[in-house]
Write a protein that binds this DNA or RNA. Structure first.
Lengths: 246, 246
DNA sequence: ACGTATTTGTTCGTATGTATC
DNA sequence: GGATACATACGAACAAATACG
């Protein structure tokens, strides 16, 4: 099978041309002739190969996209959909552990750190007054080298004043908190929504601005039950599935 | 304060005009002069009111949209963002109860029902072989008259053969299942992702196709622990926040 | 920073086959 | 058979996003 070769379709079998094209491409994906992430030939090339109009190819691609088999990006091309990372959210959720459970190689790096005055949305859940100091750690998480999530982690500065230095030494939030005297932390609640990404998030996540991000707002408590962290993660929705099991 | 009146801005305060406009509009929202769902004046009217170019107004609106304060809809106008419905997902999740907890009036109606051959994505979790019969109930859920979610509920036909008739009599999935001998059901797991909506979903949810839907795939078990339902809900992400508390 | 080529997205219009009443 | 509605297929032109030198 060659991309330039013609592939003949039955015009009288009672099956629409676009259905036949849809099935042919799907079989090529199932048969590993097209791997996850691969770019399909252009619509023009496919139209030529199947001997049909570009519209007909587009209808087949739209059907495949609707079912989540491929993803179409304006100006770039059509790509075989990657398997999403199943991100399990439990009482104790740690990024690297979760990714490793999926047989993927986790990686996480700090992209920003600062000490700020708490905005109401952050101060409230953390039990602080508006304007009290919070420490922000912004991390980019990757799985197998592909960016998965950008997370802004906020901590009450009074509880962990030296957190930024600790993070630089430990390269891990869990271990940095330990160094600051917080032995453990657990998830109190998670709020999930979705929106289109900001320009920076889209760039960092290596995704177009036209596709949604999942936003998970997470409140974590220390062993005594006091709020210790609020994290707001933005994840490329196409690459992630959040899994909740009670 | 009147919409036609001029509002003067400081051109030498070291704060960009668009920032001042952004703040003025935000204060009007905070001060209840603009309520959730209200339409703002047109960009032209705002430009006149503030005595600036329309581009300057647009920059302010873009900043407000970025932060989720307003939403801009091409061809319709700019609207104050409504408060999202916090949809709590627990072990026993029932649509109307959950909405009522938010002091909103729930409403749900059947938009489609059918008996189908199970696709792999549905058959697997339900423990059926591919091609076995499943019953589909598709419901549109509203809160205070605003469409919130479209949900496709799949049931093994062998377990509840008369479910469609039961639903028509009861107008509720919980009660229809009861009538079919399933006294209760609980959530095993929920998988959450997001994408852009299909044309039909966008129409039913009364939203543009360019804005994301949250997709929650839910597996429910009967009291004996056997899979009884898989539901795939699509929710207008702007109007819903999923809340998970362990 | 800018223009150009590539690729997908949208909207016209037209023609044809198929199912239904 | 005739009328009608709907999905299918093709063609052309232009818009919009992207990649690249």
């Amino acid at each position: 099978m060659n991309a330039t070769e013609q592939t003949t379709l039955s015009r009288r079998g009672g099956v629409a041309l676009w259905r036949q094209i849809e099935q042919t491409i799907e079989e090529e994906i199932a048969g590993d002739r097209l791997a996850p992430g691969d770019r399909l030939p252009t619509e023009h090339a496919l139209a030529e190969r199947f001997g049909v109009n570009r519209h007909t190819v587009r209808q087949a691609l739209a059907a495949l996209e609707e079912r989540g088999v491929v993803r179409v990006e304006q100006g770039r091309g059509t790509f075989v959909h990657d398997d999403p990372v199943a991100y399990a959210v439990r009482k104790r959720t740690r990024f690297s552990e979760t990714i490793r459970l999926q047989n993927r190689e986790p990686n996480s790096r700090l992209v920003r750190s600062a000490t700020l005055a708490a905005e109401p949305a952050v101060a409230g859940p953390l039990g602080l007054k508006r304007g009290e100091s919070v420490i922000l750690l912004e991390t980019l998480g990757e799985a197998d080298g592909r960016p998965i999530s950008i997370a802004s982690h906020y901590f009450p500065a009074c509880r962990v004043p030296d957190l930024i230095a600790a993070y630089r030494a430990e390269e891990s939030i869990t271990r940095a908190l330990m160094r600051c005297g917080i032995a453990d932390y657990t998830r109190k609640s998670t709020r999930v929504t979705a929106r289109l990404p900001s320009a920076e998030d889209a760039r960092a996540l290596h995704m177009p601005r036209s596709r949604p991000v999942l936003v998970a707002e997470n409140l974590n408590l220390d062993p005594e039950g006091r709020p210790i962290e609020i994290s707001i993660s933005r994840m490329a929705a196409e690459r992630v599935q959040l899994v909740f099991e009670p």
